[in-house]
Amino acid sequence: MCLGLPMTIIETDGISAMCAFRGEQRRVSMMLLSNPPAGAKVLVYIDTAMRLLDEEEARLIADAIEGLSAALDGEDCDRFFADLIDREPQLPAHLRSE
Rank of each mutant, 00 (worst) to 15 (best):
A38S: 15
E56Y: 03
A58R: 01
D13G: 04
A49P: 00
M31T: 11
A62R: 01
A40L: 02
V42A: 09
S34R: 09
S29N: 07
R27M: 13
G14A: 01
T48W: 00
T12Y: 08
S16W: 01
A49Y: 06
Q25K: 11
A71Y: 12
D76L: 11
P37R: 11
V44T: 06
A17W: 05
P6A: 00
A20H: 04
D73Q: 08
D83R: 15
Y45L: 12
F21Q: 05
E66R: 11
P36N: 04
G67I: 02
L43Y: 02
D47L: 11
M18N: 11
G74V: 06
F21V: 12
G39V: 00
A70Q: 13
L33W: 07
P37F: 11
A49S: 03
T8M: 11
A58K: 03
R79N: 08
M30T: 03
D54N: 10
R87W: 13
I9F: 00
N35E: 13
P89M: 10
A58I: 00
D73T: 09
G74Y: 08
G67C: 08
A71E: 05
V44P: 08
G67M: 01
S29H: 05
P36T: 03
I65R: 07
L60I: 09
M18S: 11
P37T: 13
R26Q: 15
C19A: 12
E66S: 10
E56T: 14
D78N: 13
V44F: 05
R59L: 07
M31C: 10
M7N: 05
P36E: 06
I61C: 02
E56G: 04
C19M: 10
I15E: 15
K41A: 08
D47P: 02
E56F: 07
D78F: 13
M18R: 15
C77V: 05
E57D: 14
L84Y: 15
Q90T: 13
S29A: 06
I85H: 11
A58H: 01
A49L: 02
A38M: 02
A38K: 09
G23I: 09
E75I: 10
M50K: 15
A49R: 02
V28Q: 05
A20K: 13
I15Q: 14
M18H: 12
V28I: 15
D76M: 06
A17I: 02
P37G: 09
V42T: 05
G74E: 07
F80K: 12
R79C: 04
P37V: 09
C19F: 00
A38V: 03
E56H: 13
G39H: 05
A58N: 04
Y45V: 11
Y45N: 10
A64L: 08
Y45E: 11
I9Y: 04
R27Q: 11
A64Q: 12
G14K: 03
I46E: 15
Q90L: 12
F80W: 11
V42E: 01
S16F: 07
D47Q: 14
F21G: 04
C19N: 04
I65L: 15
G14S: 08
D13M: 07
F21T: 06
E11H: 12
S29Y: 06
G23A: 03
I9M: 08
C77N: 08
L5S: 05
D86I: 02
Q25Y: 02
L33T: 04
D54M: 06
L5W: 13
I46V: 14
Q25A: 00
L32M: 12
S34F: 01
E66Q: 13
Q25D: 12
L91T: 02
G39L: 10
